[in-house]
Design a protein around this nucleic acid. Structure first.
Lengths: 210, 210
DNA sequence: GATGTCAATTTACACAGTGTCAAGCAATAA
DNA sequence: TTATTGCTTGACACTGTGTAAATTGACATC
C-alpha cells in the first residue's frame, strides 16, 4: 500500500479534505477525521494541537495541491486594467468551488473562535492583494469611476468576490458556476471598470435556476 | 419595579437581545441568558425548548420592536421602479445594523443546526420579497437590462443586500454606515436600474476607512 | 542479546455546553 | 383545604474538545 509511505500528518490532512469536500458534508468532528484517517482521535492531537489548527493546516495543504498561482497567471499577464480585472474575477470565481468545503468549515468556527477568524482573514488577505492589484491597474488606465478611492474600491471588489456571495448564489439560489462567474464579472466590470456593455445579458443565463 | 409586570418569556427575550446587541458580544450560552434574566437555566427551557428556538423567537421579537414595515413604507409608495429600488435598498441597508447582533448569533448556529438555517432562511425570504417587488417594478418600467431574468435579478439583489456583505464592509473593512448604503445603492442602481449616473462618486465617501 | 530512548499510540479523564427528568416550594385559584 | 401554575434545585445523559498518563514498537547502543 502506498499509504504506508505517507507520513501521518499528511494522511490526516488528506482524510480531512476528503470529508470536507464530500457533497453536502456535515462539519466533521475530530472523531470523524480520526476514523477516516484510520487512527485514534487522540493521535490526531499529536500532530495538530486543536481542531482549528487542523482546519487551517488543511487550507494550506489544499492550496499547495491546487496551485492557485497558475490560475492567476493570465490575470498578471493582462495588458489593460479591465482585462486584468476580468481575468482575476474569472480565475478567483472558478477557484472558489475548489476550496468551498474547507472554507465552509473554517467560516463556521470563525464565529466562535477568534484564532480561526484570524487565520481565515489572513487567507482572504492574500486574495485581497489580487483585488488591490486589479484596482491599481484600472487606476493606471484611468477607467475607475471619477473620485474613486482605491482602498474602498478594493474593499468592494473583495466583498463582491467573497465566498459567502458565491455560496449564496450557487448553493442557496442554485445558480450554475458559469452563471455566477458571468454575473459577478459583469457587475465588477460595470461598477469598477465602467464597462457598461458588461451589463447586457449578464442576467440572462441559459441554465434553469433551481 | 416594572419588570414584575412583564411575563417571563418576554423577560428572557429582552435579556437575550441585550446580550446579543452588546458591542463585541460573545455568543451567549443558555446559562448566560438565564443569569441575565435572573432565573435558573432550566426555567429558560420551560419557555423555549431549545437554544435555536430561543434565538429564532428573539428575531421575531426584535422585528416587532423595530417595526420594520414602517421603514419600508417609502419603498412601497415609490412611483418609478428605480425610485422603489433606491428606497428599498436604503431602508433595508439601514435596518441591518439594528438586527446584526441577533443575525450574527443565528448565522453562527446556521452552519451546524439545520433547523436554525431554515429559520434564518425563512426570515431572509421575507426580505427577498422586497427585492422581488423592486425588481418587478423595474421590469414594468422597462429599466432592467435587456434579457434579464427576473428571478436571477432578484437573487442578485438579495445577495448584494446580504447581512454578510454589510458585515464585511462595515465590520471588517471599517466602512461607515452611510458609505455602505451609498455604495450598495450605487451598485444596485447601476446594475439593475441602468442608472449609470449612480456610479459616479459612489466610492468617494468622505469618512476615512479604518 | 539486553537495555535505553523516543516517537506514535491508546486508555482514561476533565471540562463545557445542551437538553432531560424528578422532586420540591411558593403563590394563587377553586 | 386542595389543585394548579411557575419557578427552583439538583442530578444526569450525551456530545464534543482537549489533556495526561501509561503502553507499544522500532531502533540504536552497549
Amino acid at each position: 500500500m502506498s499509504s504506508d509511505l505517507i507520513d501521518t500528518p499528511t494522511k490526516i490532512l488528506q482524510a480531512t479534505l476528503k470529508l470536507l469536500e464530500a457533497p453536502d458534508a456535515k462539519l466533521p468532528t475530530m472523531s470523524d477525521i480520526a476514523r477516516a484517517t484510520g487512527i485514534s482521535r487522540q493521535a490526531v492531537y499529536l500532530h495538530f494541537p486543536s481542531r482549528t489548527d487542523l482546519l487551517v493546516a488543511a487550507t494550506r495543504y489544499q492550496d499547495r495541491l491546487n496551485d492557485i498561482d497558475t490560475g492567476l497567471a493570465p490575470s498578471r499577464g493582462a495588458r489593460s486594467g479591465a482585462e486584468r480585472l476580468d481575468a482575476f474575477v474569472t480565475a478567483w470565481g472558478n477557484y472558489i468551488p475548489k476550496i468551498y468545503g474547507v472554507a465552509r468549515a473554517i467560516m463556521a468556527v470563525t464565529d466562535t473562535d477568534s484564532e480561526a477568524a484570524a487565520a481565515w482573514n489572513t487567507r482572504m488577505q492574500d486574495m485581497r492583494e489580487g483585488c488591490a492589484a486589479a484596482i491599481a491597474a484600472l487606476a493606471e488606465d484611468g477607467t475607475l469611476p471619477p473620485g474613486t478611492d482605491m482602498e474602498q474600491a478594493t474593499d468592494l471588489l473583495w466583498t463582491l468576490l467573497s465566498v459567502r456571495n458565491w455560496e449564496n448564489l450557487t448553493q442557496t439560489c442554485g445558480w450554475s458556476q458559469d452563471c455566477y462567474v458571468g454575473t459577478i464579472r459583469g457587475m465588477a466590470m460595470a461598477t469598477l471598470a465602467r464597462d457598461l456593455g458588461a451589463l447586457t445579458d449578464v442576467l440572462a443565463c441559459t441554465d434553469p435556476p433551481a
